[in-house]
Nucleic acid binder design. Structure first.
Lengths: 190, 190
DNA sequence: GCCTGATGATTACGGTGTAAACATGCCCCG
DNA sequence: CGGGGCATGTTTACACCGTAATCATCAGGC
């Protein structure tokens, strides 16, 4: 097992330990995350992180990458359904649930600038998964459909995180269903 | 004309001058906005703002409020169409356009915490405008429809700001149209 | 005439990100 | 085997931030 362990072994290479600690701090609130706090949590001096990350945003980018990996795993699990529409809906709910479960991490992942720094192929695995289902449901509107699905789900997640939505899962589900219905309905001219 | 002027008169009451300066700094990038910078821009000492705002977030809330007023005005202008579906689509495009035109302000308006501080009736004027059109188009799914529209538009705007969308207006328009079609299509059972 | 309140300026403190110089241990090569 | 480089951390220092506490000024009302 040469891969990363789940826990935070106190003797792992500092590089990994830093992103573990940063992630842990992030889950307790984005205000808790500062380079110095991360270094402190890792039991190391304030400047040590600079030996492994060019600056704070580089560290945070590494954390964000983990977030994308988690989210893709969630999406993959939610996608394991026979019915394509049901799988798509489950992906949407998983997306929103992830945002609610890890608000600070979610915000970090989609913070401005991260889009420029992160390797795109490691951020869009989940998107591809969803696009595939959409393309199967509505081959003639695959592109617009995928964009609409992503936009809707991301918007609901963002609004929920920012306290702009009453915590009403039924309403969200209804909105998702409306979108699903729009995709399953045959496209008609005009 | 007792209301606020567009320019920044150097002798206006400090309260207004501060939010004007904060807004101006914000448009040049959110990183430019610090309480001290705002005070500097207003030609006043670093602590002066505290005489008019309890803390920085209170100032930013006032700025956000102006953002909501701008956005509602935009929405109201876009809504002036006879066709309900066209008006709805125009509102959506105006929403996204506003986000693109004032990215930092838009992010501030929807930053976490602002939802708790701001008077809801001054933030949701635009939403009501949209909800009315949706209710007219699809009275039987008014609630879910409005939520879906808001979610979609807000999601697209957010993703665009964070550099996650290729700048392809046609694709966005197609996604919005898909949603509009879903609302205009008669609801069918099952 | 003086007191009071509002407004703003000064100073100070702990926090942040980060640049520069310094210490230390390990490995590789002569 | 010895010494030089290099990776890793530490210390120190700086500018900036938000903000608490204190002081200065000045206008109006008793």
């Amino acid at each position: 097992m040469p891969r990363t362990d789940a826990a935070i072994p106190p003797e792992a290479p500092l590089h990994d330990r830093l992103v573990d600690c940063a992630l842990a701090l992030l889950e307790r609130g984005e205000a808790e995350v500062s380079l110095r706090a991360v270094a402190r949590a890792a039991g190391v001096s304030a400047m040590a992180p600079y030996r492994h990350f060019h600056d704070k945003s580089a560290l945070m980018a590494a954390v964000a990458l983990r977030g994308f990996a988690m989210m893709e795993a969630n999406a993959r699990a939610a996608d394991e359904k026979d019915d394509a529409a049901a799988a798509l809906a489950a992906q949407g709910e998983a997306y929103i649930a992830f945002a609610r479960a890890h608000p600070a991490l979610f915000r970090l992942m989609f913070a401005d600038g991260a889009g420029m720094t992160l390797p795109p192929d490691q951020c869009k695995g989940g998107y591809a998964l969803m696009a595939r289902r959409v393309a199967h449901l509505a081959p003639d509107r695959a592109e617009a459909g995928a964009l609409a699905c992503w936009g809707l789900v991301h918007g609901l997640a963002t609004l929920a995180l920012d306290g702009r939505l009453p915590p009403d899962p039924a309403a969200e589900r209804a909105a998702l269903e409306l979108m699903a219905r729009a995709l399953t309905t045959r496209a008609r001219e005009r």
